[in-house]
Computed example of a mutant assay.
Amino acid sequence: MQLHSSGVQYKLHLCLSVTLELILKILELKLMVVIMIKDWNVMDLVCTCVTTLLLVLICLLLYFISVYPENCGSYHGPHSINCLITIWEEVGCKIKGLRYPGVLTNADANTLKIMNLRNVKANMESVKSAADGGNADQQLNCYGIAIPNTCDSHNGPHSVECLTSIWESKGCLSEGTKAPVKLNTAEKEALALLNLE
């Protein structure tokens, strides 16, 4: 993540200084009111004010500081292909995926480029979620391969059954010396931790 905004440090310092000063003034007012009125119900009001000020601080921080993914310069776009690729990778999809931003048609890429960052991320997360849920088309879109039914996910660890399905789908025979069922424990564990790529 990168911070993108001119004078971010100055704005943050100013925002924190003003908010701290306001909180101190309210606490000072609270003490004066309690001393003068000796009414603890007023403290409830003051606590509400302090809470409100803290919420204002959060809003100010969100307003003055915009945190975007690497290679993304704005929330609303248009976004660069590098920005879209960063989000794609953060979501967990792979370069080999058919919907990888670097291989999209201009029309498909332009559709993503004009979305706001939240919608871009939601779009890509939905592809990954459907892929992880077993949708073979979305597995191709996200990972570039269809995950065999015997495998739980693209990422390991993988069962011997999963590894055997992959072995056989590549045309290898169960009689082969490196067939998953014939591997020793260390070899199986090492292989099981690999992605399905």
Rank of each mutant, 00 (worst) to 15 (best):
Leu104Ile: 05
Val103Asn: 12
Asn119Cys: 06
Met124Arg: 01
Gly133Pro: 04
Ser126Lys: 10
Val120Leu: 04
Ala136Tyr: 05
Ala131His: 00
Gly133Cys: 08
Asn116Trp: 01
Leu117Thr: 13
Ala136Pro: 07
Met115Thr: 03
Val120Gly: 01
Asn135Gln: 10
Met115His: 03
Asp108Glu: 15
Ala131Cys: 02
Val127Tyr: 07
Asn123Asp: 12
Asn135Trp: 02
Ala131Pro: 00
Arg118Glu: 12
Lys128Ser: 07
Arg118Val: 14
Arg118Pro: 02
Ala107Cys: 03
Pro101Ser: 11
Ala109His: 00
Ala131Val: 02
Ala136His: 11
Ala122Asp: 12
Thr105Val: 08
Asn119His: 12
Lys121Gln: 11
Val103Ile: 15
Val120Pro: 00
Ala107Gly: 05
Ala109Leu: 10
Asn123Gln: 10
Gly134Val: 05
Arg118His: 15
Thr105Cys: 05
Val127Leu: 05
Asn135Ser: 15
Ile114Asp: 11
Met124His: 00
Val120Gln: 02
Leu117Asn: 06
Gly102Ile: 02
Ala136Asp: 05
Ala109Tyr: 00
Asn119Gln: 15
Ala122Val: 14
Tyr100Glu: 14
Thr111Glu: 15
Ala107His: 02
Glu125Val: 05
Thr111Leu: 11
Ser129Tyr: 09
Arg118Gly: 02
Asp137Arg: 11
Ser126Met: 08
Ala130Val: 01
Lys121Asn: 06
Ile114Asn: 12
Asn135Leu: 10
Ala109Asn: 00
Asn123Cys: 06
Asn110Ala: 09
Lys128Ala: 08
Ala131Glu: 01
Ala109Trp: 01
Lys113Leu: 06
Met115Ala: 10
Arg118Asp: 11
Ser126Gly: 02
Ile114Tyr: 13
Asn116His: 11
Ser129Lys: 10
Glu125His: 04
Asp108Ser: 14
Ser129Val: 07
Ile114Gln: 13
Asp108Thr: 09
Gly134Ser: 07
Asp132His: 03
Gly134Lys: 05
Lys121Ile: 01
Ser129Asn: 14
Leu104Asn: 03
Gly133Asp: 11
Asp132Ile: 07
Asp108Asn: 13
Asn123His: 13
Asn135Glu: 14
Ser126His: 12
Ala136Ser: 15
Ala109Gly: 03
Asn116Pro: 05
Ser126Val: 01
Val103Phe: 13
Tyr100Ala: 07
Pro101Ala: 07
Ala107Met: 08
Lys128Leu: 14
Ile114Leu: 12
Thr111Gln: 12
Tyr100Lys: 06
Lys121Ala: 07
Pro101Gly: 07
Val127Thr: 09
Leu104Gly: 02
Val127Ile: 15
Glu125Cys: 04
Lys113Asp: 01
Leu104Gln: 04
Asn119Gly: 03
Lys128Val: 06
Ala136Trp: 04
Lys121Met: 05
Val103His: 08
Asp132Trp: 00
